[in-house]
């Protein structure tokens, strides 16, 4: 894996890690934000998938 890819992957994963915490903590008190974070997390996962494709 190239440096740039490795960095991008780490960046996406760390953001997703924070997103998962937020989803768990705000599930009841802030469902609208949770929904938005889920949508954005899906986009992030897609970026990870793109990285994977590039790496193949």
């Amino acid at each position: 894996m190239k440096d740039k890819e490795s960095h991008d992957l780490n960046s996406h994963l760390s953001t997703l890690s924070l997103a998962l915490t937020m989803i768990k903590e705000d599930w009841e008190k802030n469902p609208d934000s949770v929904s938005k974070v889920i949508d954005l997390s899906i986009e992030k996962l897609q970026k990870i998938k793109d990285l994977l494709k590039q790496n193949e």
Partner: peptide, 11 residues
């Protein structure tokens, strides 16, 4: 520049 990160850090 990333929307998701901005949202999570702001929180």
């Amino acid at each position: 520049d990333d929307d998701l990160t901005f949202m999570l850090v702001s929180r």
